[in-house]
Write a protein that binds this DNA or RNA. Structure first.
Lengths: 212, 212
DNA sequence: CCGACTGCCAAACGAACGTTTGCTATAGGC
DNA sequence: GCCTATAGCAAACGTTCGTTTGGCAGTCGG
């Protein structure tokens, strides 16, 4: 009875913290897709199979629920965890692998980033703080990797400048993905992979090692 | 009486089309800052010095008002108009000038882009269409410039790849500006200028012409 | 001078919102 | 067995929303 399986018989399948987390997950998904103002407490309750009033047993207000969703720090650590592929390849494709790795991580927490970005556009202070944290972490992660794996690339302007450029580009790419500019459709990961290789090719051609 | 001066004595200072445009301008500013759902028709009417019902003399619904705001094509042509500075400088600083030019143009229509981006994040179809149009225009503009002014930079991956990368980076930079990641504060244009030079330095170092 | 038209407003409409109240029913420690 | 806490519900609260109604004051061609 203490499993994390979805509820089936109405009440008492998930207790306390588990139910709270379930509500957070549902809120993230719905708010990311329809916007915060476009998602009512009744919508959330309905999606969770609950009554509206029950939501207020777990969160004192809609605002607090949104803050709780935004401040789940797991999403940020997911994005800045040591990349799996970016350290094991040959130097020629290493940058592409790194960029692909970050983009894939962003894709896994897409709802979170969409929600954060949307709220940032509307001037939400909590989203500002969360966004800044995520940006700073990504920046530091990129910078560290560049210093270790591609020191030549940063000789002129320094690793900070290159990392800032790459970060802005990743943010822009993700936005274009959400906007449907990238022809994702069936496979966003593949589109990201192509873009990562493309960017790596542009930056790699600086050392005159030629294209593929 | 047919001037475009702001109203002073209450009624009858701006007629028909002029008043309609005034409402559009106000709606753009308010909706960009507080979001569409966060801006009520009463808010708009109050900001325009009008009664709510008067808005419905110019727009059949709030939705139609939003569409009218988003579909003002002037904003897009502003962004893709031939750049003033990017063709008159020495080759070394030409790319920085171009990027700075585009960023400055984006800054001039900041509200429009903020509104569009925010609605894209919420899945609005009209915003999708407008955003795609703007992205495509920027892409084409960048590509054209690269072919004319920096053909060497595109030798490996081609001008399309470089232009796509630059566009994503510009989008990301603008988002970071809105998110307050760039330390704008007093002078966003200056921060954009610095970033443009930084990026140009990274891309310029490919031909081995040294730093600044 | 007079109708039609335009621009504008006060007031109200029903619906949806966030939130609260008051009530059941189960679970677990004493 | 009781008693408190937990988890849940139906129903209602007051407010705000988008929108509509009906009417008033100027403008202008005839």
């Amino acid at each position: 009875m203490t499993q994390t399986s979805p509820p089936q018989s109405g009440h008492l399948t998930a207790t306390g913290t588990t139910q709270r987390q379930r509500i957070l997950d549902i809120a993230l998904a719905l708010m990311a897709q329809r916007g915060v103002d476009g998602t009512s407490m009744r919508d959330l309750a309905s999606a969770a199979g609950l009554n509206v009033a029950s939501l207020y047993h777990y969160f004192p207000s809609k605002r607090e629920l949104l803050v709780a969703v935004l401040e789940e720090r797991g999403f940020i650590s997911d994005l800045t965890s040591p990349s799996s592929a970016s350290l094991t390849r040959d130097p020629a494709g290493a940058l592409a692998d790194l960029l692909d790795d970050v983009l894939r991580s962003m894709l896994e927490v897409e709802d979170f980033i969409r929600l954060m970005m949307g709220e940032v556009m509307r001037g939400d202070e909590t989203a500002f703080a969360v966004g800044n944290e995520l940006f700073a972490a990504t920046q530091a992660s990129l910078e560290r990797w560049l210093e270790d794996s591609e020191p030549e690339m940063c000789q002129g302007p320094g690793p900070g400048a290159v990392a800032r450029m790459l970060r802005a580009m990743l943010v822009g790419l993700f936005f274009e993905h959400v906007a449907g500019v990238l022809d994702d459709g069936d496979d966003p990961a593949k589109a990201f992979r192509l873009r990562a290789e493309e960017v790596a090719a542009v930056l790699r051609s600086r050392s005159g090692s030629g294209g593929d």
